[in-house]
Computed example of a mutant assay.
Amino acid sequence: MVQPDEFEVWYTAEDFPDTFHKTGRMVFTVDALAHALFTTGRAPHDQASYGWTSVYEWLHRVALIPAYIRRAPTGRLTRSDLARDLDRSEKVALSYALGQAMTGVFSQQVVSVRFLMHVDRYAARYGIRFAANTRRRADLFGERQSGGWVVAEAKGRSGNIDDELKETMRAQKRTIRSVGGRPPALAYACAAHFPQYKGVPDHLKLHAVDPEEAELEAFDLPAGRDRFILAYYEPFLAALEAGQEESTLDGYELASFGPFQVSVGVLTAVVQRVRRAQQGRTDHLYEDVAELLDTHLTTARSANRFMDGTIIMSKWQQALNQEDWSTETDGSYPEWW
């Protein structure tokens, strides 16, 4: 049963290893969607050069949720009529953000990825330059909770996906040959889209592919686990500094962004360790953070507390439950839909 604050999105997984289900159902909260929008953002962390860019970018992206996303009575994620009436460029921006966020949700729930980051944000953080022939590259990379790097390409569409898009996804997901000198354990692509079923715009669906072939122009991404973790948490720490400080909650430092009706938090122990890393103590950062997470997190954590030791709390229920969206189909779509 989907709870009142949860979304239900179905996915299909094509060419994944046999350990993955070919079709499945993801259930997640609106706060999980906001968390995924945070972690997949591409804005640089550098406050000296860009101010609070990563925070502003996230607030812009996360505001798309109460503005355009709605929860149908079934729990399925749909769009407001306003979203469907946006001009083409605005629809592209919404689809792009949703595609990245849903890739983040899929990565966490289905692939068990604890940390996921935009390739461009990591590259900007450490001054990595890509060759001229690598303009086509995967969006995201991260590490599974069980170990091993993953690479993910994210797409978003406001309608159906076609064979041409699927072929593009197959190519881009294999554009990173190695991460930190090791081939990725998994490289996949996800397309979040609102299919037309019997001519009626329907709820969100995810299509994922994971073929084996690599691109001829694939490149190597230099990445160390300590540097990766530092870059991963820096936008969260920037958010804590940019927002209005709140009282600590169960070992989390919190900051709120009043007009946006959202708060961000990070385990205090993780904040303290990452701040020491910002001052130069980066050795063993990954192992230290992993140990802190294993110590402080429990499997019974609430839905707005995530396995990376962060917390997102929003107050968008009224907006999400507005009935300013067209009726769904009559429910006669296939069971896996």
Rank of each mutant, 00 (worst) to 15 (best):
residue 3 Q to N: 12
residue 4 P to V: 05
residue 5 D to Q: 10
residue 12 T to N: 05
residue 17 P to I: 09
residue 18 D to Q: 03
residue 18 D to M: 03
residue 19 T to Y: 14
residue 20 F to N: 04
residue 20 F to P: 04
residue 22 K to D: 07
residue 25 R to W: 04
residue 32 A to P: 01
residue 32 A to D: 14
residue 34 A to Q: 05
residue 42 R to I: 04
residue 44 P to T: 06
residue 47 Q to N: 11
residue 48 A to M: 07
residue 48 A to Y: 10
residue 49 S to N: 14
residue 51 G to C: 10
residue 52 W to C: 13
residue 57 E to S: 13
residue 61 R to Q: 15
residue 62 V to R: 01
residue 65 I to N: 00
residue 66 P to N: 06
residue 66 P to G: 15
residue 66 P to Y: 00
residue 69 I to R: 11
residue 69 I to E: 08
residue 71 R to M: 11
residue 71 R to D: 02
residue 76 R to A: 15
residue 80 S to F: 14
residue 83 A to P: 03
residue 84 R to Q: 08
residue 84 R to Y: 12
residue 86 L to Q: 11
residue 87 D to W: 05
residue 88 R to G: 00
residue 89 S to D: 08
residue 90 E to A: 15
residue 90 E to Q: 11
residue 90 E to M: 10
residue 91 K to W: 12
residue 95 S to R: 08
residue 95 S to M: 09
residue 96 Y to S: 10
residue 97 A to P: 03
residue 101 A to D: 00
residue 106 F to H: 09
residue 107 S to N: 01
residue 109 Q to E: 10
residue 109 Q to C: 05
residue 125 R to M: 10
residue 130 F to K: 07
residue 136 R to H: 10
residue 137 R to G: 02
residue 142 G to C: 04
residue 144 R to A: 07
residue 146 S to M: 07
residue 147 G to K: 07
residue 148 G to V: 05
residue 148 G to A: 01
residue 150 V to M: 02
residue 152 A to E: 00
residue 154 A to S: 01
residue 156 G to Y: 05
residue 158 S to G: 09
residue 159 G to S: 09
residue 163 D to I: 03
residue 163 D to T: 05
residue 164 E to N: 08
residue 168 T to N: 11
residue 180 G to N: 02
residue 190 C to N: 03
residue 193 H to Q: 03
residue 194 F to K: 08
residue 196 Q to P: 06
residue 198 K to W: 07
residue 199 G to P: 05
residue 200 V to E: 04
residue 202 D to Q: 15
residue 204 L to D: 01
residue 205 K to P: 03
residue 211 P to C: 11
residue 212 E to T: 12
residue 216 L to F: 14
residue 216 L to G: 11
residue 221 L to C: 07
residue 221 L to I: 02
residue 222 P to F: 01
residue 229 I to V: 13
residue 230 L to S: 09
residue 231 A to D: 12
residue 232 Y to D: 04
residue 235 P to L: 04
residue 236 F to M: 10
residue 236 F to K: 11
residue 239 A to K: 04
residue 240 L to K: 02
residue 246 E to R: 13
residue 246 E to V: 10
residue 250 D to H: 13
residue 253 E to D: 15
residue 254 L to V: 06
residue 262 V to Q: 00
residue 263 S to W: 02
residue 264 V to P: 04
residue 268 T to F: 07
residue 268 T to G: 00
residue 269 A to I: 09
residue 269 A to P: 02
residue 271 V to N: 01
residue 272 Q to W: 09
residue 272 Q to K: 13
residue 273 R to M: 03
residue 274 V to M: 12
residue 275 R to M: 00
residue 284 H to A: 14
residue 284 H to F: 14
residue 285 L to Y: 12
residue 286 Y to T: 10
residue 288 D to Q: 15
residue 288 D to C: 13
residue 293 L to H: 08
residue 294 D to A: 14
residue 295 T to M: 11
residue 297 L to F: 08
residue 304 N to W: 00
residue 307 M to K: 10
residue 308 D to G: 11
residue 308 D to H: 01
residue 310 T to K: 12
residue 313 M to H: 12
residue 315 K to P: 02
residue 316 W to R: 13
residue 319 A to D: 01
residue 320 L to I: 06
residue 323 E to N: 12
residue 324 D to P: 06
residue 324 D to C: 13
residue 326 S to Y: 09
residue 329 T to A: 12
residue 336 W to G: 08
